[in-house]
Write a protein that binds this DNA or RNA. Structure first.
Length: 556
DNA sequence: CTTGACTGCCC
DNA sequence: ATTCTGC
DNA sequence: GCAGAATGGGCAGTCAAG
C-alpha cells in the first residue's frame, strides 16, 4: 500500500491554509489522516509539520533550492520571491511559467520521503552535487503545487497553521477522547509521530499505553516573562522559591547505570559535547535518574562566561575539552528517579529529592524570600554575579512538560538605547507587503558617522509597520535585493538583553534580543546614543562576567 | 591551506 | 530567544 | 490564554572553489 499521492497532501495543505478557523482545520485534517495507510502516517506528519530538515539532516535548504530552481527554469528566483513573499509560492509560480502544470501528478508520499532519506545519507566530496541531483530529479517530476509543498516541507515554512497542537486536537476529535490525555502522551514521549501513529492505528489504548521511558526525552517546562519581581511574587502569594537564571544551555540528563545522555532544550542529543558533565553525572549513585540543569561556561575563578564564549564550546566536535572553555552544570530539577516519574510532585518536593541526590553534584542555589525586598536584593545579587536574572517558581507547582505558564516566571535585566533606523527589509508571509526587519544605527561620535548594531523585527505591531513602510520608502537612498537603505531620521527606543561583540556589523557590536519599545517622534538623529555610550555599557557588563581572554592565551 | 557560502542549532 | 495576532 | 507566525545574533562544521 502507501499509495497516497503527494498532490493530495499538497491540496490538503492548500485547503487548511485557506481557513483561519481551527475547527475547520481540524475537520479537514481529520478526514485526511483517517485515509492514510499505516506506513504513511510518519512521512505525512513530517511533511505536514515541515520537519524533514530537522529529522533527517538533508544538507539542502534555501541556498541549494534556489540553485536547483534556477537551473531547472532559467528564471531569477529573487524576482519571484519578491513578488510572492513566500518561498514555496515563488517555486509554484516559476513552475507555472515553465509549463509544469502540464505534468500529471504521480509522485507518492512514500516515494518522496524515501528520496529525502537518500539525500540525508550522502556525505563527503561531491555530496552537494549528488544531493542536488536527487532533489532535481524529484522536482523535474513535480507539477507547480507539488513543487511548492516539497520545497516548503524542506525549509519548514508551511504557513498553514498546523503544528503539534492542532494534530493533538484532530486526534482528540477522531478518537473522541479528552485532548488533555493526548497532550500528556505527547509531552511525556516528546514524539508527536508516535502519538498519532498509536492513536490512529490502535485508538484510545494506543494513547494510554504511551509512557515515559528513560532515554526518551520529554519536553522541558518553560517560563513566562514577568514584568516585575513584585508581580511575580504576589501572583503566588509569596509562596515562591527563587533561583539564579544562568545564561547557558539547558540540559535534560538521563542516566541509567553507567549510560548517560544529555538532551538539549530541543531534545537534541548533545552528550558528546560535554564529556566532563557526563563524568559528573556518573557520580550520582542511583539506579536511574533524569535531572535538569543549565550548562554554563566558567573562568578560572568560576565566574560565568558570556554566552557567546560558551557557544565556542557547544556543538564542537574536535578539541572538545581543550578549547579553553571549561563548563559546569548547575542542576535545578529532577524529573525521574529509580523508575518513578516525579513530574506530578510539587516543586518543593522535587527540590528536596534533588538536594538529597545532589550532594556530590552542584545544584543551583535556592532562595525563599520573606519580603519583596529580599527578592529584589537577590535579583541584584544575581546580576552582580554575572547571571541573566532570576527565576521565580511557585513552590507547589508540578512539572508541566512543554508548557509555558506562570508557575515559572523569569525576570531578566534589560537595557534601552535610542537608535536610528538606517535600513529595512521586506517581510515574508503575513508581512510580505511591508518593510518588517529594521536595521538599527548608532552614532560614532569620533567619526561622526552612523554605524549598524543589528536588526530587529519585534516590538511594533503589523499596523505600525505598515504605517512605517511609507515613511521609510520616502527616505530611501539605495536598494540591494530585498533590503533598502534610508536616510537616518526615524528614531526608535530599543530594548535589549545584552551587548555582544559582532563579527558582522560595522560598529563591532550587536544587541542580543533587540526589540522596539516605540518610535521617538520627539527625537532626531542628533539625539541618539553613541558608540561611547555603547562601549561604556559593554564594559560595565563585562566587569560582572568571567574573563575569556586570559584563558584564551593558554589555549593557543 | 584559506576563504566563503551554507546549514544546523544554541540562545 | 521575543513579540504580535487571530481564535 | 493558547497556538502559530515572523524573524534576531552567532557559534562550529561541511563542502566547494581559489
Amino acid at each position: 500500500m502507501g499509495k497516497t499521492l503527494f498532490i493530495d497532501f499538497s491540496l490538503l495543505c492548500e485547503e487548511i491554509g485557506k481557513t483561519a478557523k481551527r475547527k475547520e482545520k481540524i475537520k479537514i485534517l481529520s478526514d485526511f489522516l483517517l485515509k492514510l495507510d499505516k506506513e504513511e502516517i510518519g512521512p505525512v506528519l513530517t511533511f505536514l509539520l515541515g520537519k524533514i530538515s530537522a529529522e533527517k539532516k538533508l544538507g539542502i535548504r534555501e541556498g541549494g533550492i534556489i540553485r536547483i530552481i534556477e537551473k531547472i527554469s532559467g528564471k531569477r528566483f529573487s524576482d519571484f520571491l519578491a513578488k510572492t513573499g513566500d518561498f514555496g509560492e515563488a517555486v509554484k509560480e516559476i513552475f507555472y511559467e515553465i509549463n509544469r502544470d502540464k505534468i500529471k501528478p504521480a509522485l507518492t508520499i512514500k516515494e518522496v520521503y524515501e528520496e529525502f532519506i537518500r539525500i540525508s545519507e550522502i556525505k563527503g566530496d561531491f555530496s552537494k552535487e549528488e544531493k542536488e541531483k536527487i532533489l532535481t530529479d524529484i522536482l523535474e517530476r513535480a507539477n507547480p503545487l507539488e513543487a511548492k509543498y516539497i520545497v516548503k516541507s524542506i525549509i519548514g515554512e508551511m504557513r498553514h497553521g498546523v503544528k503539534e497542537g492542532l494534530l493533538i486536537e484532530s486526534l482528540s476529535f477522531i478518537l473522541n477522547i479528552d485532548k488533555k490525555e493526548i497532550e500528556r502522551s505527547f509531552l511525556i514521549s516528546g514524539d508527536i509521530k508516535k502519538v498519532l501513529f498509536e492513536g490512529l492505528t490502535r485508538g484510545k489504548d494506543g494513547i494510554r499505553d504511551i509512557e515515559f521511558k528513560i532515554f526518551n526525552p520529554l519536553f522541558p517546562m518553560l517560563a513566562e516573562t514577568a514584568n516585575s519581581i513584585e508581580e511575580a511574587i504576589s501572583l503566588h502569594k509569596g509562596k515562591v522559591a527563587i533561583e539564579y537564571k544562568l545564561d547557558g544551555i539547558r540540559a535534560q540528563i538521563h542516566k541509567e547505570g553507567e549510560k548517560v545522555i544529555i538532551f538539549s532544550r530541543n531534545l537534541e542529543n548533545i552528550t558528546d559535547s560535554f564529556p566532563e558533565i557526563v563524568k559528573e553525572i556518573k557520580k550520582i549513585k542511583v539506579e536511574s535518574i533524569v535531572v535538569e540543569g543549565e550548562i554554563i561556561g566558567v573562568d578560572r575563578e568560576g565566574k560565568p562566561l558570556p554566552f557567546q564564549y560558551l557557544m565556542r564550546r557547544a556543538g564542537r566536535k574536535r578539541d572538545i575539552t581543550f578549547s579553553g572553555i571549561p563548563v559546569k552544570i548547575f542542576l535545578f530539577d529532577i524529573l525521574f528517579l529509580n523508575g518513578k516519574l516525579l513530574i506530578d510532585l510539587p516543586y518543593c518536593e522535587r527540590r528536596r529529592l534533588l538536594e538529597e541526590i545532589g550532594r556530590e553534584i552542584q545544584v543551583v542555589e535556592k532562595f525563599e524570600p520573606e519580603r519583596l525586598e529580599d527578592a529584589e536584593n537577590y535579583f541584584e545579587k544575581a546580576i552582580s554575579l554575572g547571571h541573566e536574572g532570576i527565576m521565580v517558581k511557585n513552590i507547589s507547582s508540578p512539572y508541566i512538560p512543554g508548557t509555558r505558564g506562570k508557575n515559572w516566571l523569569k525576570i531578566k535585566k534589560i537595557n534601552t538605547l535610542d537608535l536610528v533606523i538606517i535600513g529595512a527589509e521586506w517581510g515574508y508571509g503575513r508581512r510580505k507587503n511591508y518593510l518588517s526587519d529594521l536595521y538599527l544605527g548608532i552614532m560614532d561620535d569620533e567619526k561622526r558617522k552612523i554605524m549598524c548594531v543589528g536588526k530587529t523585527f519585534k516590538g511594533l505591531s503589523d499596523e505600525e509597520l505598515k504605517n512605517l513602510t511609507g515613511r521609510l520608502l520616502s527616505l530611501k537612498i539605495s536598494q540591494k535585493g530585498r533590503t533598502i537603505f534610508v536616510k537616518p531620521e526615524i528614531v526608535v527606543e530599543v530594548i535589549f538583553d545584552e551587548i555582544q561583540k559582532s563579527p558582522v556589523y560595522d560598529s563591532g557590536f550587536a544587541l542580543r534580543f533587540a526589540r522596539i519599545k516605540g518610535i521617538r517622534e520627539d527625537k532626531g538623529k542628533q539625539d541618539i546614543n553613541t558608540i561611547s555610550d555603547l562601549k561604556n555599557l559593554y564594559k560595565k557588563q563585562s566587569l560582572l562576567k568571567g574573563k575569556y581572554e586570559e584563558i584564551q592565551g593558554s589555549l593557543l
